[in-house]
């Protein structure tokens, strides 16, 4: 591991000479670095790239030399193996069917969860009776992991497809609900008063103050909910699916196609990253005022 890190660290080094070789104060050195990149996030991007490269390099070395120190890398596919299997998978087309299937399930499960949990959370935040009625039920159901729902879901829903979407729904439902509810409780009362004294009705206050004031928390809930949705989906697909990227990954193990396992995992990672990025993007579009902060 240590020998792996040393050569790979070399590309990072050209960054260092940018510090002035003459004895400058810490201040001028910092200005020098800043000035060179003029505020662009070049450095974090560079560091991120280097760290990813290091990871792949370590992976490569561990698998090529079949390192066996209690943890066994003998059967782990190398980056090159995964690249090769990705090529075949991309050409055959079934891989994308799996990906498409998973995305569809996420979309349905997540959107239904958002469509139910956000309004419910807003109303629970506004009406105490509703909160008192719903909160205990949600607190009892919340700790049950979505995976534990799999057998029940299969019994509940007529098709496998519906039960998987249901599991995905459940996974994202509670984070969205709780964050929305929490957002409602942190709405600044002075803003509500300001709206009321400007002539806003109860309904207008809800629409014009409570909703936008809660949006940041709603989006936090959506981001967390999306993450849990993927966790739940993959688990459900591994257990009861016939398609989907989770099924693909599990099946690869059963068929002893080890490089496909890594391919599936990477695909899941990329999809998860892409979906949380999409939510953040939508959040930024929905809340242009928070960009100013």
């Amino acid at each position: 591991m240590a020998s792996a890190a040393a050569p790979a660290a070399a590309p990072a080094r050209p960054e260092l000479p940018q510090a002035p070789p003459v004895a400058g104060s810490a201040r001028t050195r910092r200005l020098g670095l800043r000035g060179a990149v003029s505020g662009l996030p070049v450095r974090p991007a560079l560091v991120g790239f280097v760290s990813l490269a290091l990871f792949v390099m370590a992976w490569h070395l561990l698998t090529t030399y079949r390192v066996n120190v209690y943890v066994r890398f003998a059967n782990v596919p190398s980056p090159a193996d995964v690249l090769a299997s990705a090529e075949t998978a991309f050409l055959s087309g079934t891989f994308f069917e799996h990906v498409g299937m998973s995305c569809r399930r996420i979309l349905f499960g997540f959107l239904i969860a958002a469509a139910v949990a956000v309004p419910l959370g807003l109303l629970m935040g506004r009406f105490r009776l509703l909160r008192e009625a719903v909160f205990p039920v949600s607190e009892v159901l919340r700790p049950i992991p979505a995976i534990a729902w799999v057998p029940m879901a299969i019994m509940l829903w007529p098709t496998n497809e519906q039960s998987i979407v249901f599991i995905t729904f459940l996974g994202s439902f509670f984070p969205i609900l709780l964050n929305t509810l929490h957002g409602m409780s942190t709405v600044d009362p002075v803003l509500v008063r300001a709206a009321r004294s400007l002539g806003a009705s109860e309904a207008a206050t809800f629409r014009e103050v409570y909703l936008p004031a809660t949006l940041p928390q709603i989006f936090t809930g959506l981001t967390v909910g999306m993450g849990v949705a993927w966790v739940s989906l993959i688990a459900a697909e591994m257990i009861s699916g016939q398609f989907g990227i989770g099924y693909f990954t599990w099946e690869a193990y059963s068929l002893v196609q080890y490089s496909d396992i890594a391919l599936g995992m990477i695909a899941i990672g990329v999809l998860g990253l892409a979906s949380s990025f999409a939510i953040r993007l939508i959040g930024r579009l929905a809340m242009p005022w928070s960009a100013a902060r």
Binding site: A194, R196, S197, G199
Partner: peptide, 20 residues
């Protein structure tokens, strides 16, 4: 009877709507 726009109110805390 209740709040209304015939009485404008200014609070000590800034009460502009941040999203507007």
């Amino acid at each position: 009877e209740g709040p209304g726009a015939d009485r404008g109110m200014i609070f000590q805390q800034y009460s502009l709507f941040p999203w507007m």
